[in-house]
Amino acid sequence: MADEPLIPRGAALGLIGCEACGLVVEQPPDAAPCPRCGHPLHARKPDSLTRSWAFLVAAFILYLPANLLPVLRSTKLFRSWSDTIMSGVVALWNDGAYDLAIVVFTASVVVPLLKMGALALLLVQVQRGSAQLPRERARLYRILEFIGHWSMLDVFAVALLIALVHFGSLANAEPGAGIVAFGAVVVLTMLATMSFDPRLIWDSTRIPDRRATDRLPT
């Protein structure tokens, strides 16, 4: 077990892997173009924490109107969306549709909040120089990357519903500002996730194993 060789890190060896094409380059000057694909070479994404926080705070702020403003105004129909998301959930619950209430509550309220909370946790941990559970935090980041665009589901569904209702001139359904805010929350959370540099998780000097050495793997 103890004989397992330490795996060095690019930063310690002056090696940078191009973000776009993956080519490994030795000690390039900062932001030099990659010789293969022309993308600027950076050891870490520039201003990653600032940019990520900026998008995340914007998403947090818009999360309020997304939940407080009406998503869909309609007469008698679509109780699960009419008025705000939360009042729709309450209406479903009072009607006895507990399962649907839980699904809508999870997809529209819990998941976006969890995503923003998880990213905030990753950012805070990096800024504190935490050495705790780096592998788990790395996995958390990959999950965030993967589920990012799925929160768009409700936004698409509401837009399609409004389109369909008007096609058939079936009823009066008008979108509320909440749905636009909700779409903005999803996009901003995706941008915040993309701006975060997961390599920062491992940059803490307090992470003891896999310490960088001056040897390359052979």
Binding site: L15, G17, G22, R199, P217
Partner: peptide, 9 residues
């Protein structure tokens, strides 16, 4: 190859 997620070589 350098890992994009943790900078390991």
């Amino acid at each position: 190859a350098i890992c994009e997620h943790c900078d390991s070589v």
